[in-house]
Design a protein around this nucleic acid. Structure first.
Ligand code: FES
Ligand code: FES
Lengths: 152, 152
DNA sequence: GAAATGCCGACAGAATCGGTCGTATACTGA
DNA sequence: TCAGTATACGACCGATTCTGTCGGCATTTC
């Protein structure tokens, strides 16, 4: 539990790969799939999803493929996960669309919602760029969002 | 994705319920199940799991049931989730027991492991007591673990 | 000894996930 | 224009996981 789906993982890997190859105009789904050894057709669908959510730009035809729609610094892991797996809540009851049948009795939900927000905040603070440069992250403190406050 | 299983939710609810009724010596699984309208047999198994992990004390026989093994303040949400759903990793590849087949190619895992730790830290900082007292959590800062550092 | 309770394993139904296939569509370049 | 390469999209299926149920047994109280 509390783990990324493989699809989200693939999606992040693909974006990271694109971020690492800024010189190329576009990379096809197959290129990326081959690079990591993941199912090409599955990755294709994932890339399409991200395209639909505005994270990627696609281009059909020969020498077509995908490219980042924005700077790698401006795409957060949160957005990727959101695009691929949809909205997520740590509470099992979705609360947004259709609340759980035992919503009135369960008072667990509310405090956990705050945990949920914290996690979302962490994920939002991570950009594709951060993933691409996997050098030693010892003393990085740029942009000030390296610290997440959790006032429970 | 990234959501608690219903079982973990139930488990937290049950512990919270026990924490709210410190006067009673023990509450049966059925008592708690009825209080929240959750399947009694399922909850029973969950309580047993938590007992096995040392979070609860059980007592068979008439007027038996469960009671907290420790003070509500000393039981973290992390422990509960761990006891019920087992160890969790945000990366889809478990990495501990049997690493994913594409471990060498995937460099996503390592940065995400740090996110994983952060989330675990947040969960560890939340006690059953915190859940039980769902008053306005405006100005609580006790014990100094209300702040989680995330140095990505 | 009977009733209430916890303990444990097996199992079935449902939902979700991972992955494949087929087909339609769009673009490129010769 | 036409062939080739690539995305777009929906249907589908097998595997896994999750949720919940059942049955039998052990333990304690009355
Ligand atoms: S389980 Fe649905 S409100 Fe908590
Ligand atoms: S998917 Fe297994 S190592 Fe990243």
């Amino acid at each position: 539990m509390l783990k990324l789906t493989k699809k989200a993982d693939y999606g992040l890997m693909a974006l990271k790969y694109l971020a690492e190859h800024p010189e190329t105009v576009a990379l096809s789904a197959k290129d990326v799939a081959d690079a990591y050894g993941i199912p090409a057709q599955l990755l294709a669908k994932i890339l399409q999803l991200m395209t639909k959510h505005g994270l990627l730009r696609s281009h059909a035809g020969m020498n077509g493929g995908y490219s980042l729609a924005r700077d790698a610094r401006q795409i957060s892991a949160y957005e990727v996960i959101l695009a691929i797996d949809g909205p997520f809540f740590i509470t099992s009851c979705t609360k947004g669309t259709k609340s759980c049948e035992l919503t009135p009795s369960c008072t667990i939900k509310e405090p956990l919602a705050r945990v949920n927000d914290t996690i979302a905040g962490v994920l939002k603070s991570i950009s594709i760029q951060d993933l691409a440069e996997h050098e030693q992250p010892a003393n990085r403190a740029r942009e000030g969002h390296g610290l997440v406050a959790l006032t429970l």
